[in-house]
Design a protein around this nucleic acid. Structure first.
Lengths: 184, 184
DNA sequence: GTCTATACACAGATAGAC
DNA sequence: GTCTATCTGTGTATAGAC
């Protein structure tokens, strides 16, 4: 399969950016087309619907976090502190500022009381995140404590992402990660 | 001015419910009309646009929180612990479960990267909230510490509201308020 | 103050040429 | 694989009768 100028994956990457910033309902097929420099027809050639695009977007985002952020939590040759430090750095970069915060959080608040379509996939992301933190905290705390700490860090970071976007100031996010490191 | 079947304020109260659950962009004028048992025309008789309705919704919600939730933080005849306890109880009720979480948080994540229209009004809500917490924590901590604790509680509660709605389990929210009480 | 009817733009989605 | 053209529904908003 040689000649295909635009791969499905390229399209998805572009859509991640747009959905993250504009949200699911507000984003139109024309927006997605314009952002990729193509036409609506191209998207309907690859996907059956806008909903299917969003599913692909969430799957790709989950895979990104699993590979680039959460994975370091399980590095066998690092101490717990080193693993947390590395994960914080990666997460900070992934959630960074003007790109639209956390697409999973955004989509939960936007859709949770309208439709269940995306919730299961979003739960996978949060379960992965919580498990990664739990593993790190588990090396210095009892299992039950580690779980509570993990949930607390997830909540704190997500709330701080909100404040970061409201005040357009990334200091809220870095402060949350500092609090997380203090918990270890 | 005797005969007016539906007051502007009645309409706004209904709209709060709908916007909280469905979000700003997803909610249509027809949704608002249906929820109040009236027609679209009635809304355009009272408001110039959907945007103006949302402004009224945010103003009314801010006033509600100021009066019913944040006010107890300044009760002169209560101890800090009692004030925090009372505020937590009121906040728990206001944010409760299936009603759609926090309309201010929802609106920030939905609109922050699309338009600045509502951000200033939303900042008032968060400033009020933070100030109320800061006042309570200030009775037992230094001013700088109290401010940090207040921001931390706001972030933790907002993040927990997200998890509550994702998992449809209010235990996440009550846990956040327990952590807040432990900080005093 | 509330209604019906409607203007006008744009949404998601499909068809078919190249 | 990409395009243009188009269908159909629905969105915000307005006009005007009652």
């Amino acid at each position: 399969m040689p000649l295909q100028k635009t791969t499905k994956r390229d399209l998805v990457r572009t859509c991640i950016r747009v959905f993250r910033q504009q949200g699911y309902y507000r984003t139109t097929m024309a927006d997605l087309a314009h952002a990729s420099g193509l036409t609506k027809g191209v998207f309907y050639h690859h996907f059956a619907s806008k909903e299917e695009i969003m599913q692909a977007v969430l799957a790709e985002s989950s895979a990104f976090f699993a590979e680039k952020v959460f994975k370091v939590a399980y590095a066998p040759d690092l101490t717990a502190a080193q693993r947390l430090e590395a994960m914080v750095a990666a997460a900070l970069k992934a959630f960074s500022s003007e790109q639209g915060g956390c697409i999973f959080a955004n989509t939960v608040l936007e859709t949770a009381h309208v439709e269940d379509t995306f919730l299961d996939q979003i739960k996978v992301f949060f379960a992965d995140w919580q498990h990664a933190l739990q593993t790190i905290f588990g090396s210095r705390h009892a299992a039950a404590t580690a779980e509570k700490l993990a949930i607390r860090v997830v909540a704190d970071v997500e709330g701080s992402l909100l404040l970061m976007q409201l005040y357009k100031n990334s200091a809220y996010l870095t402060a949350a990660f500092e609090r997380a490191k203090a918990l270890l």
